[in-house]
Design a protein around this nucleic acid. Structure first.
Lengths: 118, 118
DNA sequence: TCTATGATTCGTTATGTGGCGAAATATGAG
DNA sequence: CTCATATTTCGCCACATAACGAATCATAGA
């Protein structure tokens, strides 16, 4: 029950759901997520930490950059099923399609240039 | 996205999840749910309203009693899948098994006698 | 080492939410 | 109608949480 509630509460914020969906096809560094959501870096960092705690995300470091991705499957069955459910439920969401389009543009900008804004 | 967030937020409270799971096999009137959770009737009523708004529950009136049940399938695909996911994820939850046991006892008491306490 | 920079942590503030009791509503019984 | 009772609505309080900016930490490069 505790693990389940941790996952549900992690999902119970629109910006965190947007993060999960933006990571469906690729990994992103924090500044790219920040650009997508239009929030302060500290806020995004907190959201990522909450998703990580729920075992919905993992990350890897590469120099000064930290790349987040959806959790690898098989580590937490509950997390796997939560992610599958969210993706299915929101597969055709219009707002998230907008995010996807804007993300395409963000990915075309050099990450180093993008981050320098903050 | 709005419907999805409404459902997720409805699920993001342990007492509301307990309500959903207690209704898995049967309908219950408000005072039975109140007895199960040990909360004030007004609080339970609010929780039920939130679940109803998310289309996870329906109800029927019978005299002074109002019986709540899980939403009939086929009305909201998102709600159907949410309920299926919750039930699968928590199928073996220990705390919820306790609820189930206590519910058995509550159901043996005449509902009229039970409600008179409040 | 020193500086620049990506990310996180901390402190604060505003808003949201769960809880209760009192009052209101609705329905059945007498 | 009047009273009892099952439920909901309302007003309030305590606590949780999302947001920001400032400060801190960590790492790469000069």
């Amino acid at each position: 029950m505790f693990d389940f509630m941790t996952i549900i509460k992690a999902l119970a914020d629109e910006n965190r759901v947007r993060i999960l969906m933006s990571l469906k096809e690729r990994e992103l560094c924090v500044c790219q997520v920040t650009e997508l959501l239009g929030l302060a870096p500290s806020t995004v960092s907190k959201h990522l930490a909450i998703l990580k705690q729920a075992r919905l995300l993992e990350y890897r470091k590469n120099g000064r950059w930290i790349y987040y991705r959806l959790a690898d499957k098989g580590k937490s069955e509950m997390a796997d099923e939560a992610l599958a459910w969210v993706q299915k439920a929101l597969a055709n969401d219009k707002q998230l399609k907008d995010d996807e389009d804007r993300l395409e543009a963000i990915l075309k900008v050099d990450a180093e240039q993008l981050c320098r804004k903050y």
